[in-house]
């Protein structure tokens, strides 16, 4: 067969895979609404959704579906999708497979903000849980600005970004540990629990906030798919030779993916592993072309977190295991299995 036809066929196949994965994610999500302490059937879920959409009056069970299950699962999808997408972008612009949105210290800065709010009640509206969210968000952005500010002085190369990020990561961890050291026992418990990463508190309000950030940032980043292709696989000199300003693109894409990450983890706490591993799982399956990798890793991330959260909800029910913990149990074997069985040319 002609290589042109072969190439077009491959492209179509990839698009088909991506669409299938999204459809699968939606079906699985609807199914997971039925799972949990209150028993609900698929039929009941569908009829509840119909009633919600037509604004009819709801039963208690339908209220559970509307106010607890659906926002929780939407938040799981958004969190997984967002963290994975941001991770893919961060790995591309730093040319480094070990990078995740958290390498540059965002999560430890967010954890510091959350601890600050929980223990000292500092920050804005700290008496409410929203105060914790805002303080966490503020500090994660502050950390990102520091990282970019410092490494900008030395040219915004992948190395400077990663090293400054790791340094600040330790700094904020030290801050957090200091606060924990001086805190009361009950405060310590809730500050530590925050770092597990959990979807228990998800509300429609949270879903809307995260959705807005994602709807703005994703298209802006996806437009740069070819730029990411160039940056992920070439030294800066060559990237320039292709008509791209590497430092500028690194700054813009970096800040956008930080924004996505910060807005998610401020609500959920640290769900760390997805941002590192979902991009790799996706690369092993669909390849490193960001035109396909970005949407594919979005779906893989969403799927992974929905699955992890559901397992966490049902496995020791009524105890709910935080999603941040389960996602590692789920992701690590999957990832290692793929590394062993898939392409040799990878890494």
């Amino acid at each position: 067969m002609d290589i042109r036809e072969q190439y077009d066929e491959q492209t179509n196949k990839k698009i088909k895979w991506i669409s299938l994965l999204f459809v699968f994610m939606i079906i699985l999500s609807i199914y997971t609404i039925t799972l949990g302490t209150a028993n609900i059937s698929v039929h009941e879920v569908l009829s509840a959704i119909r009633k919600i959409l037509t604004n009819s009056s709801l039963t208690v069970q339908e209220k559970i579906i509307l106010h607890l299950r659906i926002p929780r699962i939407l938040m799981a999808i958004l969190a997984g999708a967002g963290l994975s997408f941001a991770g893919t972008v961060m790995q591309a612009i730093t040319r480094n497979p070990l990078v995740s949105p958290f390498t540059i210290g965002i999560s430890s800065a967010a954890a510091f903000g959350a601890s600050l709010a929980i223990v000292f009640g500092l920050g804005i509206y700290t008496s409410t849980s929203f105060g914790i969210v805002l303080t966490a968000f503020f500090f994660s952005l502050l950390c990102a600005l520091l990282v970019y500010g410092i490494s900008n002085k030395i040219g915004l190369t992948p190395e400077t970004l990663i090293l400054t990020g790791i340094a600040l990561n330790y700094l904020f961890s030290a801050f957090t540990a200091t606060i924990h050291f001086f805190s009361q026992e009950h405060q310590l418990a809730s500050a530590v629990a925050w770092t597990f990463g959990s979807l228990n508190a998800s509300t429609w309000e949270h879903v809307v906030y995260v959705m807005v950030v994602i709807v703005i940032c994703f298209p802006l980043l996806y437009r740069q798919a070819w730029v990411f292709n160039a940056m992920a696989s070439n030294e800066d000199e060559l990237v320039q030779g292709l008509g791209i300003n590497p430092a500028k693109n690194r700054a813009v894409a970096g800040i956008l993916s930080v924004l996505v990450t910060a807005s998610i983890i401020s609500f959920t706490g640290v769900i760390g592993f997805v941002g590192l591993v979902a991009p790799h799982i996706s690369r092993l399956i669909i390849g490193s072309d960001h035109r396909f990798l970005l949407p594919f890793s979005t779906a893989v991330g969403g799927l992974l977190v929905v699955l992890a959260d559901t397992i966490g909800r049902v496995i020791l029910s009524p105890v709910i295991i935080p999603v941040g913990i389960v996602v590692s149990y789920l992701g690590v074997p999957l990832f290692i299995n793929l590394i062993i069985t898939r392409k040799k040319g990878y890494f």
């Binding site: 290589i3 190439y7 790995q91 591309a92 040319r95 480094n96 497979p97 292709n229 992920a232 696989s233 070439n234 030294e235 060559l238 690369r283 390849g287 490193s288 072309d289 040319g345 990878y346 890494f347």
Partner: peptide, 10 residues
Amino acid sequence: TYSSFPMSVV
């Protein structure tokens, strides 16, 4: 040239 994220030749 070497890449951690190799793409296909095409």
